[in-house]
Design a protein around this nucleic acid. Structure first.
Lengths: 192, 192
DNA sequence: CGAAAATTTGATCGAAGTCAATCATTGTGG
DNA sequence: CCACAATGATTGACTTCGATCAAATTTTCG
């Protein structure tokens, strides 16, 4: 898949870009093939990179009292970054880990900011991506606030039907705010 | 406080605007004085309005199985809208209620969209506001996912030191995902 | 194949929920 | 301007969901 085709995909998924903007974007978009288990961003690092996932998947997680807690999953056509570091310029509380051999596009914040200043189109693309993220987070807050662990798991499966084939249950468990053991019990053949 | 002064405030708080953009914005910004307890948006309504709070405060909440659950607080210099309705064009799952006699600025989505198309500046302002919201939500997710109810309450007080004087405890309780009774116990003079 | 990693299962515990009653504060009509 | 009704907050008793600790079992992969 060429960079042109990938950018087309991004445009279809999010918002269109002018030809000028696209040719500038191509100059700074860095294709990246990375094997499973690669750590893209480490805790404590100032990460000014965002990754678009062409193929594969990744997660953001952090270590809280030695426990590994997944905070975000990203699959094909999603972006992932260390949200706090990228947007607030803080040392990243997150790690970002690639979960399957992946094909990514890396973008630096300085390039994103420059293109956003230069092209109204690109600013809009940016806004659309952030808005989508915000809406996903909104749904997640509602889920964490009022749904039982069963309901949260059911909802995750609704959104990502085959997620269990792609990521470890322990990652899913911490993502929906429960322990691995509880998730295992939830998944057990019904004993009504 | 004049509309000009308010727009200055928004610029300082979020992002600057060109003179052209500001004069267009003034044409569509609608000042609004509303008394305490006013419902600005009702559940089921398609709301295409966002409100900037000059003075006073408001909350977004919804009714889940008859229970009133607060999903968002907004104070001076904050924006509030029915997030799903405004951004995804769905019937609003939320109510928006004014909690103190308030001075608001109402903006319609069609105007916001038009100004965003017309002025790169305004698109950026938009993006900055949405980004800020997204980062707040991020913090809230982390809080709901890993902190005890005590920690969540302490954190809320850190962010809004005098919130308890401005909103009901029942609203605070549901916002941090606990019952009113649990909040009451948390607040009780320490019994270590 | 065999060791390490991932998942399941079991037993017990604790934080927060529910239900119910009481206390405190607020605001309105006589 | 007080009385008392309505609303808001606290407290108590009991229950429940999911956490923790501890194996046992299954899967993955070198």
């Amino acid at each position: 898949m060429t960079l042109d085709e990938i950018i087309d995909k991004i445009e279809r998924q999010y918002a269109p870009l002018s030809e000028d903007c696209k040719s500038e974007l191509i100059k700074v978009a860095k294709p990246l093939m990375v094997p499973k288990n690669t750590i893209l961003v480490k805790e404590g690092q100032y990460s000014n990179k965002a990754f678009f996932i062409v193929k594969g998947c990744a997660r953001a997680f952090y270590l809280k009292d030695g426990k590994d807690i997944t905070d975000w999953f990203a699959f094909e056509n999603d972006f992932i970054s260390s949200i706090n570091s990228f947007f607030s310029n803080m040392p990243s509380p997150h790690y970002i880990e690639v979960l399957e051999d992946a094909f990514l596009i890396e973008l630096k914040r300085e390039d994103i900011d420059r293109l956003s200043d230069q092209f109204h189109d690109f600013e809009r693309l940016n806004k659309v991506i952030i808005t989508k993220t915000m809406l996903q987070q909104q749904e997640r807050i509602v889920s964490l606030q009022f749904q039982s662990s069963r309901q949260r798991y059911a909802r995750l499966i609704e959104i990502y039907p085959n997620i269990t084939q792609r990521v470890l249950l322990s990652h899913i468990a911490s993502y929906i705010g429960i322990t691995l053991e509880t998730l295992s019990r939830i998944r057990r053949p019904n004993l009504t």
